[in-house]
């Protein structure tokens, strides 16, 4: 999937870069132009493309290197198939909640002065929480909602023992809560540019034509903001699907999520010599994330027309 993705992209760019006039001097100029890209292409080829190709190839090989589809079949059945379902459910849930809360928060933040301290602090904090701290957030939540966390103890003190009631930070609900904590800041980062692109003139024009607040949102702002909102939602989905560190640190690798199972297979924790099954699972993830991101880029390109 990724491979075909790369080649189509390469093909498209190659076409657009070469208005078909194959005179000798043009070819020389083109070659010289690509020369400057050579280090970049060589580097990404070795450290990005080659590993991905090996995953795709390995997904269809048995331990002796012969062709097989067993890995791929196993990867979608039983516990592994269920892991895909769980991962997708978790990602959908945290993406929707994160996107809605993040969008509201982004609008609230934009109402403050652009060069104010609050805006800068929120931007920096979002950057930290969304990109930096998978492991760190796991520990922060152990301190908050773990079995002896401050909130757990406070709730127990008022007679509400959540762990008695079946809650655990180390299961689906707990992980979802932690994921939402980094999904909201990510939404803030990716959705703010869209909100900033909304022109004040549109609101004024609507008001002059007698539109109410609701009508403005229903017929002007809503339709313009819907595509970037959906695009951001998809990005959040992909982000959650790929996340490994938080769930691993929280559960010691015992929850049935796809990244966690790949990790266990690769490090040979469960059964030895199942690395290629791990690659098949990886291929499945790349396909899911690739599809999601393909839709994302399509929407994003259309959005650029209005909010660019």
């Amino acid at each position: 999937m990724t491979v075909s993705n790369t080649t189509t992209r390469t093909g498209a760019a190659g076409l657009s870069a070469a208005p078909a006039r194959p005179t000798g001097r043009r070819w020389v100029a083109r070659a010289a132009g690509l020369l400057g890209l050579l280090p970049f292409l060589a580097y990404t080829g070795l450290f990005l493309a080659a590993p991905v190709v090996m995953v795709v190839v390995g997904a269809f090989q048995d331990n002796d290197g012969a062709f097989t589809t067993d890995n791929v079949t196993t990867a979608v059945s039983d516990q592994y198939g269920r892991a895909f379902v769980t991962s997708i459910e978790l990602s959908a849930l945290t993406a929707v909640v994160g996107a809605v809360l993040g969008a509201v928060l982004a609008q609230a933040v934009l109402s403050r002065r652009p060069d104010g301290v609050l805006r800068k602090a929120v931007t920096s904090a979002s950057g930290v929480l969304a990109n930096f701290g998978g492991v760190q957030l796991a520990f922060a939540f152990i301190a908050t909602l773990g079995s002896i966390g401050i909130v757990t103890k406070a709730l127990a003190a008022v007679g509400l023992d959540i762990y008695q009631g079946g809650f655990t930070l180390f299961g689906f609900t707990g992980i979802a809560i932690v994921y939402i904590y980094f999904q909201v800041p990510l939404m803030l980062i990716v959705f703010t540019p869209a909100l900033e692109g909304m022109r004040e003139q549109w609101r004024e024009a609507a008001e002059n034509l007698g539109a109410t607040r609701w009508q403005y949102w229903r017929h002007v702002a809503g339709p313009v903001l819907l595509p970037p909102f959906l695009a951001s939602l998809l990005l959040l989905f992909a982000n959650s699907l790929s996340a490994f560190a938080t769930a691993e640190a929280l559960t010691n690798g015992i929850i049935g999520l796809v990244p966690i199972q790949i990790g266990a297979l690769v490090s040979g924790n469960v059964v030895a010599d199942q690395q290629n099954l791990g690659k098949a699972l990886g291929l499945g993830m790349v396909i899911v994330v690739g599809l999601v991101m393909a839709v994302y880029y399509r929407i994003q390109r259309r959005t650029a027309r209005w909010l660019g």
Partner: peptide, 26 residues
């Protein structure tokens, strides 16, 4: 070639690190 270089640069967003590391090992 901007779009092309940008496309490659954004690829790591599509490839989960846990998948990348699988290939790196090989």
């Amino acid at each position: 070639l901007k779009r092309f270089v940008e496309g490659i640069s954004l690829l790591p967003l599509v490839i989960p690190p846990i998948v990348l590391v699988n290939g790196v090992l090989v």
